[in-house]
């Protein structure tokens, strides 16, 4: 048999083991759903994959309006890392030109990176949290003011286009498409965790809209209208 003092210590350890077991049961079984939900809320983030807006083409198939993707460099500045920031900005400026700060000097941007410039910046993306390459869509139009009037224009909301005038507004439903939605887990530094990316909603590009007139006809129609006015 164990001596009295030893028995007390053994009893303390056994009670401790029992307490640990109860606590473990609480997290792994009893309140599991609550903590899983809480954890997922903190970890998972959803994002939108913008659908490319459809083209507007004339009756001969010539594009009058289309969407083009660009890549911008964004460097966010961390105020408490002054020396590191200066070094980083200096190094990036040596490699690419046109890096400009915002008014508060909290962010540096360089728009429309070329593929070779993206390759040059590859190492900085993994090394520094604040360095990002952000894709950006831009709506492009054929360079005829007469056609612009008929084609109309778009505005942006949360990175997505919506038609506000002309054919862009009239054919909004066909042009728009369906944005994709993804889910991904982020680590403590808000970086994506490899292997956790999931597609929730499939993205569908907008359809092309074909107008009844050719570009030449649109231009001549416009000229006639102006002539009548005069």
């Amino acid at each position: 048999m164990l001596k009295n003092r030893n028995r007390i210590i053994i009893a303390v350890f056994l009670l401790w083991a029992l307490l640990i077991t109860c606590r473990l049961f609480y997290y792994t079984v009893y309140s599991r759903d609550h903590y899983l939900e809480e954890g997922n809320k903190h970890a998972w983030r959803s994002g939108v994959i913008p659908a490319a807006r459809g083209r507007i083409i004339d009756k001969n198939g010539q594009p009058l309006a289309w969407t083009q993707r660009y890549y911008d460099l964004v460097i966010e500045i961390y105020p408490d890392l002054c020396r590191a920031n200066t070094k980083l900005i200096g190094e990036v400026r040596e490699k690419i030109s046109g890096l400009t700060p915002d008014d508060k000097r909290e962010k540096y941007t360089r728009k429309n990176l070329t593929p070779s410039e993206i390759l040059v910046l590859k190492d900085y993306l993994t090394k520094y949290q604040g360095v990002k390459i952000v894709p950006r869509m831009e709506r492009q139009y054929v360079d005829y003011p007469e056609a612009r009037k008929l084609v109309g224009s778009v505005d942006t909301s949360e990175g997505c286009f919506f038609g506000v005038k002309g054919a862009e507004k009239e054919h909004e439903h066909e042009l728009k498409g369906i944005d994709g939605v993804y889910m991904v887990m982020l680590d403590r530094n808000r970086n994506w965790i490899p292997g956790t990316w999931k597609l929730k909603t499939e993205m569908q590009h907008g359809s092309d809209v074909k107008l009844e007139y050719s570009l030449e006809e649109i231009i001549s129609m416009n000229k006639n209208e102006q002539g009548k006015k005069l």
Binding site: L24, Y27, T28, V29, S31, R32, H34, Y35, L36, E38, G39, H42, A43, M185, D187, R188, I193, T196
Partner: peptide, 27 residues
């Protein structure tokens, strides 16, 4: 402390399989 709670919850009764421990590897 919060990550302990979430990690234990993910384990559940039988665990999340070997090599599939997202929380232990990420958080």
């Amino acid at each position: 402390i919060l990550q302990f709670q979430y990690t234990l919850a993910r384990g559940g009764i039988l665990g999340a399989d070997w090599g599939n421990c997202l929380w232990a590897n990420s958080y």
